Computed example of a mutant assay.
Amino acid sequence: MLSLVCITYDGIKALVTYDKDGSINKNSGLYGLGTAIGQPLDGIFSVICLENLRPYVGEFMPNDPQRGLDLSKPRLPNGETMAGFIGFAVNMIHIDDTNLFHLTNDGNGLRETIFYTLFSRLQVYKL
């Protein structure tokens, strides 16, 4: 499965162009790029637009160069953190420095948009 992430909706519109009859123009956009490098695309692909995701609105972990999200640890009814809890998967993703500060027009990065959407509730435990 091929999935792409675009920062803006305009980026998505540039991926595919259509002929006058409504069919996909295989000589332009992503299809044209695939053909040009000898890897033609067949079928469909999904696209996620960061601009359209509801971002994390809380604080970031202090002094964290990776800008981890300051999420509350899960607690048992007695208030204790569950045994073996390591953290949230969204904060365990290492984002390369060149991509760490790619921001949407609203100033949101990859961690607080796509990774938060996908992994915000995924908890990691040590057995």
Rank of each mutant, 00 (worst) to 15 (best):
F45P: 05
F45I: 02
F45Q: 03
F45H: 05
S46C: 00
S46M: 00
V47D: 04
V47F: 06
C49T: 08
C49R: 04
C49F: 07
L50C: 12
E51D: 14
E51Q: 11
N52S: 14
N52H: 11
L53W: 11
L53P: 14
L53H: 12
L53E: 15
P55V: 07
P55M: 08
P55W: 09
P55A: 13
V57I: 02
V57F: 01
V57G: 03
G58E: 03
G58N: 02
G58I: 00
E59K: 06
E59Y: 01
E59P: 00
F60S: 02
F60G: 00
F60V: 03
M61E: 13
M61C: 12
M61S: 08
M61K: 14
M61L: 11
M61V: 15
M61R: 11
P62N: 06
P62D: 07
P62I: 02
P62S: 08
N63D: 13
N63W: 00
N63E: 10
N63C: 03
D64N: 13
Q66E: 08
Q66V: 04
Q66S: 05
R67E: 05
G68P: 07
L69T: 08
L69A: 08
L69Y: 09
L69E: 08
D70P: 05
D70E: 11
L71I: 15
S72F: 10
S72W: 02
K73Q: 10
P74E: 04
P74Q: 08
R75C: 10
R75H: 07
L76W: 01
L76E: 09
N78L: 07
N78Q: 05
N78F: 00
N78E: 04
N78G: 02
G79C: 12
G79E: 08
G79T: 06
E80A: 09
E80Q: 10
T81D: 01
T81A: 07
T81Q: 03
M82G: 01
G84W: 06
G84T: 05
F85C: 02
F85L: 01
F85H: 06
I86H: 13
I86L: 15
G87I: 13
G87E: 11
G87Q: 07
F88P: 01
F88M: 08
F88H: 13
F88V: 07
F88R: 07
F88N: 03
A89M: 13
A89F: 12
V90H: 05
V90E: 09
V90Y: 06
V90I: 11
N91L: 10
N91G: 10
N91Q: 12
M92C: 10
M92T: 10
I93C: 06
I93P: 01
I93T: 03
H94L: 05
H94V: 11
I95V: 15
I95G: 10
D96H: 15
D96A: 15
D97Q: 12
D97A: 14
D97T: 14
T98S: 12
T98I: 14
T98P: 00
N99Q: 13
N99K: 12
L100N: 09
F101A: 04
F101G: 02
F101S: 07
F101V: 06
F101Q: 07
H102I: 15
H102F: 13
L103K: 15
